[in-house]
Nucleic acid binder design. Sequence first.
DNA 1: ACCTGAACACCGTTCAAGT
DNA 2: ACCTGAACACCGTTCAAGT
Lengths: 248, 248
Amino acid sequence: MGTRNPFEPRDVTSRRGGPVKAPLSREAIVQVALDLLTRDGLEGMSLRKVAAALETGPASLYAYVDDLRELQALVLDRALADVAIPKGSALAWRGRLASLLASYISVLTRSPGLAQLAMNTIAAGPNGLRIIEALLGLLEEAGVDRPTAAWAVDLLSLYVTAIAAEQSHRNEHGDPLGPFVRMLGTVSQRDFPQIHASREQLLAGEGLERLDWAIEVLLNGVLHSPRAARDGSELPAKERSRAVAKHR
Amino acid sequence: MGTRNPFEPRDVTSRRGGPVKAPLSREAIVQVALDLLTRDGLEGMSLRKVAAALETGPASLYAYVDDLRELQALVLDRALADVAIPKGSALAWRGRLASLLASYISVLTRSPGLAQLAMNTIAAGPNGLRIIEALLGLLEEAGVDRPTAAWAVDLLSLYVTAIAAEQSHRNEHGDPLGPFVRMLGTVSQRDFPQIHASREQLLAGEGLERLDWAIEVLLNGVLHSPRAARDGSELPAKERSRAVAKHR
DNA sequence: ACCTGAACACCGTTCAAGT
DNA sequence: ACCTGAACACCGTTCAAGT
């Protein structure tokens, strides 16, 4: 690069007739970063590449963003804006909860690397809050007591994020269970009888079928494990039946 | 480095009187890598640093290891050797299952970065297999049908890995919920009434207490969501009661 | 205040060359 | 076959200097 030819117009026109040069704002940086993440995955979203896409040097970004970590948090929250929160009560709470979780997974899976990013980032942005708020509301509607609901939000979002991370890791890394399948094929019946007997079952099922089942497990588990009652007897029948009876 | 002084003895003695130079074997590489991971976290376990610790260049490692990914998988399996698998039947299945999961978490949390590594690596090594085998056995003992048990293994290990990753991420990054707590303090009652009302509950509880509760949720959920019965009626009472009655 | 080039201290991986 | 130095193509971040 060195010296620049002074006669060459300095990006007076954008390729698409847009504004003169990239305006370089926090929003523009986050948008370009999300685009890169969606196109090229987590590795493709480096500060240097974002800067290059904005036709500037990497140092320029530090005027708008403290850190790579901060940029990642901003990108995550931007992406979470697309999570659909079921409105009204067309569906019962269980259907709305399942559909919210499904939308969250679908957003995280849409951009490769976004789920991995979500695993390492606390989603404390406005869109993350919207989702937490909705989860708490739906659990209350389900009759789950508040202490249980609070922890359940943590459990549900962590698990669902982990599922998405696992899925997109497989998609991204062209690693469709490769080593795992090979391992299952060669596992010895002597040393690992249980695994041997469960070979097909371990691989059975579409991703979506397994996801539906997992969400059912989590919801059933939450309904059957109220915290409020744990202090009392081992079988808190009254408290539990209240939550369980609501939808079963 | 350039030229080496030919009079200087070429590492004839190790610092601790050990063998002459590091023998450079696959095992030695994995061991050093695990040591680095335990001491310095995920970032500290680079091929270059492992090579430096073995007093060689990074290129030398490629004779024993295909890839950074392969090294990571080997390190993970090596670490999983420490997971304690409850023997005999001193405890009921539920106690042994909980203690196996707790041991798994404790191993993953012991070395910072190990859990993150586990999130991105399929644990198909011998020690990973030992754990899967034990989980399948315990679930069978619990009366869970085989198709359900197979998927449950996936669910349990994924969730528990995610918990460990979250915990050690907080520990490692000196990020003890910092931004999340700050966010909870400033969240507006108007916009997010549910979050506002659940502020204390969202933060309440020791890590271990929450972990115990989460494991209870997962086990209760698995017991109440048998796959074998899903084809039939919505309320597969017979199948379910068989599994549930076993321990409740 | 915003922007920048250059540098610093790192990465994983490859490759030709040595033994 | 094993090992190596050097190079290649990258990183995030800092900093003095410009406007």
